[in-house]
């Protein structure tokens, strides 16, 4: 028996919007720790890891570990039927082949339940090693989204170079080239507007902008984004989900042939 009641149902709606274009089908894992997901895109180039901690739910009952295979497009269709202010409860029976999403309006005058068929998904769970990253950039998530969107109108790939001077996003295409440099800036009114660059050593990596743009669909979940890089390793683009957990996107770099 599984019953998870989330007062801020809009968080779950936003999570689905953030990942449904990257991943088609995925197993949601439910344990005493929380509600989580790990899935790769169909090309196995990017990986998304989601955690919504048990403490973040108003009610969290998970009698035994449960893995529920869902088609994210179908799940998104169902969650779109929930109002932004609705409370969402996820319910499932052990060994059942459906999951129920229950939506309660804030003043309890409308209660809906949507039952969705589960599916068997063969997915390998990857071990993500603990890494000390050589460059960690925290910046406003909207700024990061803007840069990725702008550069993708010029080129297909972005070179992200981080040094003590700042972080440079560069691209090249048929019509020309572009560079955007962001310097550390902590003299801002609100902490979420700051750009903070922590560098152990300079890092330069090349990535497909198509994936970066897909990750920025998580922008509504957080005012800030953290981009962690080490030379010759996948980048991690992390959006914290207030008081609940995180959504992390890992993207393998491109290398010169």
């Amino acid at each position: 028996m599984l019953e998870l009641r989330l007062l801020q149902g809009s968080l779950l709606k936003k999570v689905l919007e953030a990942i449904k274009d990257l991943v088609t089908d995925a197993n949601f894992d439910c344990s005493a720790t929380g509600f989580s997901l790990q899935a790769m895109d169909s090309s196995h180039v990017a990986l998304v890891a989601l955690l919504l901690r048990a403490e973040g739910f108003e009610h969290y009952r998970c009698d035994r570990n449960l893995s529920m295979g869902m088609n994210l497009n179908n799940m998104s269709k169902m969650l779109k039927c929930a109002g932004n202010d609705d409370i969402i409860t996820i319910k499932a029976d052990d060994g059942g082949d459906t999951v129920t999403f229950m939506f309660e309006s804030p003043n309890q005058d409308k209660i809906s339940d949507f039952e969705m068929k589960l599916m068997d998904i063969d997915s390998e769970h990857l071990g993500i090693p603990e890494t000390e990253y050589e460059a960690i950039i925290r910046m406003p998530s909207q700024e990061f989204a803007r840069i990725c969107r702008d550069l993708s109108t010029i080129g297909d790939t972005v070179v992200i170079s981080a040094s003590k001077e700042g972080v440079k996003f560069s691209t090249k295409g048929d019509i020309g080239s572009a560079n955007v440099v962001c310097r550390q800036n902590t003299s801002v009114d609100k902490p979420e507007d700051a750009t903070v660059i922590e560098i152990q050593q300079p890092v330069s990596l090349t990535f497909a902008l198509r994936y970066m743009n897909s990750f920025t669909k998580a922008t509504p979940l957080s005012n800030t984004v953290t981009v962690s890089m080490s030379n010759e390793l996948p980048v991690v683009v992390e959006y914290k989900i207030a008081e609940m957990g995180y959504i992390r996107f890992y993207l393998a770099p491109k290398i010169e042939e």
Partner: peptide, 14 residues
Amino acid sequence: SNKQLRITSFFQAR
């Protein structure tokens, strides 16, 4: 041109 690496060459199946 650049070659796209796969995430599975960095993270191993558990």
